[in-house]
């Protein structure tokens, strides 16, 4: 009997926890939509490219982190290996893009 009450309690606890996570994810979604609108707005507004390009790249990186940490649950515990793998991938990716874009200039 006591075991039953316990599991009912923990179920309630997890339900609340999931609800809290969901709230964060909805906020994340709203912010990603806002960032997307800002990025498109900057380009449609015809600002200088030296201003627009860095800003939209930063917005993309922030959206990337939102997606990883909230939508793909990397903010939860037990995600050390996924973090290692994805950041190793990002490191190799940065080198690849850098290499391919600088080769053409020389």
């Amino acid at each position: 009997m006591s075991k039953n009450t316990n599991s009912a309690h923990s179920e309630q606890f997890y339900k609340e926890k999931h609800k809290e996570e969901m709230k964060h994810q909805v906020i994340t979604f709203a912010m990603m939509i806002i960032f997307t609108i800002i990025a498109f707005g900057l380009v449609a507004g015809g600002f200088s490219k030296y201003f627009t390009i860095p800003v939209i790249l930063v917005l993309a990186v922030v959206q990337f982190l939102f997606q990883l940490y909230y939508f793909m649950h990397m903010n939860q515990k037990g995600h050390e290996m996924p973090a290692l793998m994805i950041y190793s991938g990002v490191f190799a990716a940065a080198l690849t893009v850098l290499g391919l874009t600088t080769i053409v200039w020389w």
Partner: peptide, 25 residues
């Protein structure tokens, strides 16, 4: 499955990076 899939996603990141680099070039 969870670990293996994240490993795969790390590889996919590099794959897409090579396509992005080619596009930019």
């Amino acid at each position: 499955k969870f670990l293996g899939f994240w490993f795969f996603l790390g590889g996919e990141t590099v794959l897409f990076a090579s396509l992005f680099g080619t596009y930019l070039a």
